[in-house]
Design a protein around this nucleic acid. Structure first.
Lengths: 158, 158
DNA sequence: CCCTTTCAGTTGCAATATGCAACGTACTAG
DNA sequence: CTAGTACGTTGCATATTGCAACTGAAAGGG
């Protein structure tokens, strides 16, 4: 095992590096965004994203491997292949929306199109926020990083 | 709107690609994770992440350029440089936490260390979820992608 | 059936990005 | 004055990405 691989091993204890191993490559998020917006087929992804065909092929394959997309032949047209989100893939929505809202606020400076709305009230969804276990919004100064063992000791001491 | 029109509209304008321009490169998220966990100095990032020095230098520079980190000389030791999150950087916390929680749930399979807790209740923060404007949790089938102009027409028609 | 087009890739090669080890420069500690 | 620390930079090797052309299977039309 190389030094780089060792380090990756050590830090894969953090969910972020674990997640990035799977969806951290270039184009992965944009492909997922496409999938959330209803893209299904290779040619749709390719023309809409403008991604190189070999890279698209590679990324779709990897997302399928990791169980984020499901790859099914189209029964109506046997040339076509349908890629769709699995539950694991759909569960990435908070990540995509957080990223999108941040980009809207700090980079592009205006809301994106299309808008994700509550189907019934027709209101756009709320900004993604960090909340306490009982649902209060928290800002960074209301929070603290605590070592897991330390936290266990605290609660057993109480 | 026809399906073809939908597809044309899907990528016209999206905060995700804007955000990825800035924080989408390899290591950027891990550097930010480090910053949120209290890393301040070049050598700290380097030894903790195991990232190559030239890449670290490049990424820190880019994050500073984009106003996500602030770079200050240390007044006590003029060899040292302090990198710290700006408000723009701190506002990436929902992205980092969503990603982390997804990685914990679907990849690593267990909670990461350290834990982010409510400073006062000592409870770990809640999972990141998508909510309606009035705070109800929403699942994907409660939501819908709508074109902005279309949404405006809906509300003026009502 | 034959010809053309569509779909989902693959291949070869050029351009970028990343990784590693060694080096440089400024500063600090002793 | 010397050794060590902090923050990089440089040169070179490897890996990833991008592009254009090509393939093969399967419609679709006449």
């Amino acid at each position: 095992m190389s030094r780089a691989e060792q380090l990756r091993e050590v830090f894969s204890d953090c969910g972020i590096s674990a997640a990035l191993e799977v969806v951290g490559e270039r184009w992965s998020f944009l492909i997922l965004r496409g999938a959330f917006n209803g893209l299904r087929h290779f040619e749709e992804f390719q023309t809409n994203l403008g991604i190189a065909r070999n890279i698209l092929s590679n990324r779709l394959g990897r997302l399928v491997e990791h169980g984020i997309l499901r790859r099914d032949p189209d029964p109506a047209d046997r040339r076509k292949v349908t890629y769709r989100l699995t539950e694991k893939g759909r569960d990435l929505l908070p990540v995509l929306l957080s990223l999108r809202q941040w980009g809207e606020r700090w980079i592009s400076g205006h809301p994106s199109n299309p808008v994700l709305v509550d189907r019934y009230t027709r209101q756009p969804i709320a900004p993604m926020i960090v909340q306490s276990a009982d649902g209060r919004p928290l800002s960074l100064r209301d929070m603290e990083w605590v070592d897991r063992d330390e936290l266990d000791r605290e609660s057993s001491a109480a």
